[in-house]
């Protein structure tokens, strides 16, 4: 479904991703955890070429792209098979909630406007914001904006949704509504790759948790296993810091 082979990213002499190999099955929910600055976000951003990987191979569905020889067409095709949820929401400020969601259908998939908006209304219903269709991003709360951000990703019909720390910018009072929506998507078997610091989300929802440090996958496994019985000392050290009330 999704396959990364030897994915590398270097900025000058600094190596951010040091050969990532990863397979994600259809409907699988994979959560990436790890210390700050270890390349978690870069990993997500390389999968849809918001950053250009230095080397490696990315397969999404039936499309395989080699980082060393990409065409503009490949990149566009790859981006159209993936969707991205941003830490700072990144909604289109000149469009209301409905059109933020419908935009992809209208512009990329060339649906007639009314059909696209109908579909967008269904999505607003699913994300619990049916009454906010006409609202512009500036008038929505952080949690509402991020739900629209997720709605925009849902509208793409992408094979995988990439979540880049979707709750990090939220005030504590809004944090619950976003994981709630993500859990709902998980129940619908949407394939997801999630970078997050919300360990409770990782534990409750993930099929598999991946611990990344120094641009490499250090350890991975089902959350029950990784959280209760981490093998690598770096994983143990990290979990001790983020889960202080638990003896790892």
């Amino acid at each position: 479904m999704i396959q990364l082979k030897g994915l590398r990213k270097e900025y000058g002499k600094q190596t951010v991703l040091d050969g990532i190999d990863l397979d994600i099955a259809k409907g699988e929910i994979v959560v990436v955890i790890g210390p700050s600055g270890t390349g978690k976000s870069t990993l997500l951003r390389c999968i849809n070429f918001l950053e250009t990987p230095t080397a490696g191979e990315i397969t999404v569905g039936d499309l395989t792209v080699d980082a060393c020889s990409t065409s503009r067409k490949d990149i566009l095709a790859l981006r159209r098979r993936t969707a991205f949820v941003f830490q700072n929401y990144a909604l289109f400020a000149n469009k209301n909630a409905l059109d933020n969601i419908a935009e992809r259908l209208i512009v990329v998939d060339r649906w007639p406007k009314e059909k696209a908006r109908q579909k967008a209304r269904e999505i607003l219903q699913r994300i619990g914001l049916a009454d906010k269709a006409e609202a512009y991003p500036a008038s929505l709360s952080g949690g509402q904006q991020q739900r629209v951000g997720i709605g925009r990703a849902m509208a793409t019909g992408a094979e995988v949704i990439l979540f880049d720390e979707p709750t990090s910018s939220l005030d504590p009072e809004w944090v619950e509504e976003v994981p709630g929506l993500m859990k709902q998507l998980a129940r619908e078997h949407q394939t997801m790759l999630v970078v997050t610091h919300e360990m409770s989300f990782a534990r409750d929802v993930a099929d598999r948790v991946i611990f990344v440090d120094g641009g490499r996958i250090v350890e991975q496994g089902p959350p029950s296993e990784l959280f209760s019985n981490p093998r690598d000392p770096r994983t143990r050290d990290f979990l001790r810091k983020v889960l202080p009330d638990q003896t790892a």
């Binding site: 918001l50 981006r79 159209r80 993936t82 400020a93 935009e103 992809r104 990329v108 925009r152």
Partner: peptide, 18 residues
């Protein structure tokens, strides 16, 4: 114009011109 909106537009598969 906030750079992240450009990234968001790219992420849903829009071309530079779009």
């Amino acid at each position: 114009v906030d750079r992240s909106q450009t990234e968001a537009a790219l992420s849903i598969g829009m071309t530079n011109a779009q």
